[in-house]
Design a protein around this nucleic acid. Structure first.
Lengths: 191, 191
DNA sequence: GTCTATACAGCGATAGAC
DNA sequence: GTCTATCGCTGTATAGAC
């Protein structure tokens, strides 16, 4: 990633990290050329549409990875609890246990949101739906509510972990949503 | 806010909305002059340090508002459950039931994070600590864990509500954390 | 395919008249 | 205090040699 990428896929991965670090507006072309080792000529050869096409390619790559690794098992694995465990494990690895932010979430809060609204919405819709499906298939109630809360907690933990510079936030959140997702109780209702 | 502000405080409020919409990098001085109705001369009269000082002023204003309205009652109100109810109510109002993002969280994910790291960290530290204090004073266990999860869920719900363009996410999250915060049980542990 | 050179628009910031 | 004019710089993007 720090050495010149020979293929477009390598360039996409390198550019993703730059967007993560600086945001869409903050990621200047000079930063991108410096960090990828690619000249502007090569960059515009891979991405004729410029920065916007780079960001679109990054989002598509992220979406594809999550679809293959997380969403599809959640929907299709005959053992839904194993798929949920896998989601937790892969999510922890992907976000480096809270040390890496979610670019989709970052773009959602950014001014660039409108540009990529469809992709951003699609990503979270797919995640929530796939997780709700697994929870429901495991025989538990309130599947949609639990799934939505788990997805939102992951995003919030990434914000908080970065704000406090404390990855422990992410680990504690993962333990909690695992419990909430797999809890047999509908709820305890204090009133 | 759309008409020329006569005081610095009005300018801060107007600038805050522009940062919310475009992010720090995306909020250009020309956008700021256009939307505030203030010329560059006036802007630099109020904020000699330019954009960075504007953002610092906005963050200080947000921090002050939350300290007065939310954090202080959480710590000092003799009725901690009332303070928690107030937090939920004020938070719902402040974030317009999920239609408005948290600028502190947005800056945390942004490339501007390092510039304002102390303020961002201070804000969330204060919130988590004040809420944990109220939960503990109400006689419930696992105060820090519950408080951290509530703060993180608020941030995540704002990300998700904006991503899905569905404020309902925020309302559902508020109902859930109210339950979790006030639940008498330590937990139900399925294993 | 990759480079260097360059176009030109917009950036944040400043100066100075009023 | 507020305006307009302008600075120097960096932004994205393109052209054209190799």
């Amino acid at each position: 990633m720090s050495r010149p990428p020979r293929e477009r896929a390598d360039a996409v991965a390198a550019v993703a990290e730059i967007f993560r670090e600086f945001g869409f507006e903050g990621a200047s072309l000079s930063a991108i050329t410096a960090r990828t080792g690619l000249g502007k000529g090569s960059l515009y050869h891979f991405f004729p549409g410029g920065k916007e096409e780079m960001a679109a390619a990054v989002l598509a790559e992220i979406d594809g990875w999550f679809t293959r690794t997380v969403f599809a098992p959640l929907r299709d694995d005959p053992d839904p609890e194993a798929a949920i465990a896998r989601m937790l494990r892969e999510t922890d690895a992907y976000f480096r246990s809270g040390r890496r932010i979610c670019l989709v979430g970052a773009f959602a809060l950014d001014g660039t949101r409108d540009r990529f609204a469809a992709r951003i919405g699609g990503y979270f819709t797919a995640w929530r739906r796939a997780l709700a499906d697994a929870v429901a298939r495991s025989g538990r109630g309130e599947a949609m509510e639990r799934a939505e809360h788990a997805v939102l907690a992951i995003q919030g933990a990434l914000v908080l972990a970065r704000s406090l510079d404390d990855p422990g936030v992410f680990a504690r959140m993962l333990a909690r949503i695992e419990r909430d997702l797999l809890s047999p109780e509908t709820h305890d209702r204090p009133n």
